[in-house]
Design a binder for these strands. Sequence first.
RNA 1: GGGGGCGUAGCUCAGCUUGGUUAGAGCACUGGACUGUCACUCCAGAGGUCGCGGGUUCGAGACCCGUCGCUCCCUCCA
Length: 590
Amino acid sequence: MLSTSLRTGRAGALRASNAGEHVTLGGWVHRSRNLGGIVFLDLRDLDGIVQVSFGTDWASAECIAAAAAVGVESVVVITGAVVPRSENTRNAEMGTGDVEVQGVSLTVVGPAVTPVIPVARGRGEKLAAEELRLRHRYLDLRRADLQANLVLRHKLLQESRRYLSERGFLELETPILTKPTPEGARDYLVPSRVHPGEFYALPQSPQIYKQLFMICGFDRYFQIARCFRDEDLRADRQPEFTQIDIEGSFVTQDDILALAEGLISSIWRVAGVEIPASFPRMTYADAMERFGCDRPDLRYGLEIVDYTPAFRDVAFNITTSVIESGGRVRGIIVPGGAAWSRKQVDEVESLAKAAGAGGLMRLRRLDGKLDGPMAKFLEGNPAFADLVEGSLMLFVAGADRISHPALDRVRQECAKRLELVRDGDRQFVIVTDFPMFDRDPSTGTLAAVHHPFTAPHAADVAAFPDKPEAWRALAYDVVLNGTELGGGSIRTSDPALQSRMFELLGIGDQEEQERRFGFLLEALRAGAPPHGGIAFGFDRIVMLLAGAPSLRDVIAFPKTTAARAMFENAPTHVPAADIADLHIRLKEQP
RNA sequence: GGGGGCGUAGCUCAGCUUGGUUAGAGCACUGGACUGUCACUCCAGAGGUCGCGGGUUCGAGACCCGUCGCUCCCUCCA
């Protein structure tokens, strides 16, 4: 019901078919043009802008004077007739450009002071500084592109709900005041007034609760869940964010991934983009070997190749010592890279070094010959015979732990320099079989790569019972163009195995387990179905589909990189008495 | 915790390299003219703690030190 007691409809929706109607419109004065005898107001609402004209032939002198006096961004209610514009006054750039409203009355219902940041902008005019846009969010959110982002957000939310609900998933809510989790990101803590010295935490994700739902028999759950993490911010990271959180029982990895593909493609369809109904799969091991990264950008090649065998018998100090100590020599071929200057390659090398590599070895084919510091050792080596004229090879020698991230960085940089990414290209991929554990190189302790509730491949546990770092997890990520959209896993539903997991993670003590995860272990012992799920970063999806450069452009009231809300001015000091009620003493009085 | 960038009129910026008269421009704003504009046009006007504090200097928007805010990145984000 866009028509209300105070208006007949939205101004921006008027079209040629509305000609002849008498309308009452409410909206914001976007701009005005006073030509003396005739006054034009551009009236804006959520649907767009329509021109309202006040001329002596149809409007009273008082009405024209009122139109001339009203300031931009004031809220007005006008009445008038929708009339077709004459041939020479049509405006093809406006949705409403075939008509205008000949205003016969105007009431200023919400007078506005001059806006501190402009809402209407001229062509090519820059946005105000983001700090000001956030401080005056009530003005910034009047802009058509931010409004469009939030409208898109709404549509994607509704589509997610529709898709999941139609498949029997129940939207169930979980607590915001919950239990602190020692693993993972830093928690936002909430002090308890009733229980001195005790704290709630805001959830980093509803992980444990959704598993509890499965144990209860709600075999299909989803939630558009707000999650909180007290870590440093980025353009694509906010302290509170929204996940599409999904869990199902009696499912395998393939069931969850098929659901994920369907959900993602229906979300993309609502945004006007048709994508394949299923995505290619790639194992973690394969992704690391070929791209040095667990979320590869498949919009371009530049795959990493292992040249260790070719270097095995080459008397070149660096490669020889690396190979002897168990490392490898891997690299990528950069077509046309032979034309890059020494300085340009040095710039790429500095990125590799920043990622941990000792350096970047170069080899190129110029005038038919191999060229570079290693050329004399490699000329005639069959591994380099088909290096084509004008190509450049960049190698990193070292342990995989070093060369993976370095080559990943080099590959991305080369793709950027070669402009290999075509506009609008989308390459989805599902990465599977993540390792279960990661061994901290300094402390030697195991850490869960995904989270401690993830189930390992049963075959790996059987084959390497005492070598948990060889276990693969039933964990998976959905990746688009090198960005992780979401990830999940099949969970451990066997309490004994879950207990073993905690032991491996150094939480061996029975009491410690009970204290930290007791409620989950106890529930698992009460009879748990096999279950698993996935969660998608919803804000990031909206950002991608809106083409927005920052998460802040798809969240109505975001935080700055210092986790401050500019508009509401939060966080803030509170009265000492309120703090005392929480049994907290501040180190220093502000 | 670390590194880079930015901070001058309500907004967007120039001025800083090489210190020197009264700190400029466009937009917005105010007043005036104008009956078909749509970034209306034209005339006139007002508008400044050069983020803040300290230092160097005869003299600082500019140079130095510190600090605050915003932003991008690293650390971090099971």
